[in-house]
Design a binder for these strands. Sequence first.
DNA 1: TTAAGTTATTGCATTTTGCAAGTTCTGCAA
DNA 2: TTGCAGAACTTGCAAAATGCAATAACTTAA
Lengths: 151, 151
Amino acid sequence: MYKRYCKLQVLYYFCGMKKNRSDCPISCSLDVFGDKWSLLIIRDIMLRGKLSYSEFLKSEEKIATNILVNRLNILESENILSKSVSPDNKSKFVYSLTKKGIDLLPIVIEIMDWGAKYNENCPRREIGKKIQVDKSKVISDYLDKLTEEFG
Amino acid sequence: MYKRYCKLQVLYYFCGMKKNRSDCPISCSLDVFGDKWSLLIIRDIMLRGKLSYSEFLKSEEKIATNILVNRLNILESENILSKSVSPDNKSKFVYSLTKKGIDLLPIVIEIMDWGAKYNENCPRREIGKKIQVDKSKVISDYLDKLTEEFG
DNA sequence: TTAAGTTATTGCATTTTGCAAGTTCTGCAA
DNA sequence: TTGCAGAACTTGCAAAATGCAATAACTTAA
């Protein structure tokens, strides 16, 4: 029963919501991931090795289950994530980044760097420190890693 | 009368809303500008030479007046924008980017590049084409320009 | 066929957004 | 000094999105 609902949700997304506010690339991008949750899901899968609904749910920001389902559907509809049955556990789904999703990496890295620079209460972890030393190397290294893993 | 209200809005922002969802720098950044409008205001001032309330209001995405006031207050409270009387027209305010605001440039550029790459209906303008050729040069050129203008 | 793990839905309260209309403020010119 | 026009801001209401807690559906393996 809820599969049908899920498909409806995707359908609504494509039918009703496809109106971009303008043809500005920044505006169009924000139409897709301009909210407080989408890029955190991307972060989890991109930098923290999380792959499944239940793992995303455990993140410290405490996303609600309905919001998570909704965002996963949108990101899948937009071809940023793709969903498949886990090879390890056949009753489980795993999400992977498409090329389009992997290409969000520089945005995520820049946001992380800015956030760490201007928030005293945000400690830089390994990756944050590496970014300070050589940001473009971090990006190209992760790009290779993600391409190997998902691409 | 509305000046007092404006100060109240800022007060509410500082008192009530200062709860970051986590100490992750990405999450903290999104707590500030993770919505569909804030970065469009930044874009207008950063790349389009817009400086005032009435100019922001004219952008093609058609932000509502109450949302615009709210976001300007937040961005000012967060020390991303600063507000002053226009030297040209004393009955007018102009906003300028702080250092913290200028440092959003790489994020904005990366979002623009991604958006142009994955939206056929988003034509690349001059800056979009320059980004394809040499992104880091575009960033450093604009950084110089913005620093001279605002910094 | 049932238990355990995983994913999805629902209903309701709260918050945010969108929209349209109106208000206040400021400087300037008559 | 008054009135006007441009600019900035507020308000009220409807609509949409979010947050929360409880529940339901699905899948596989035993």
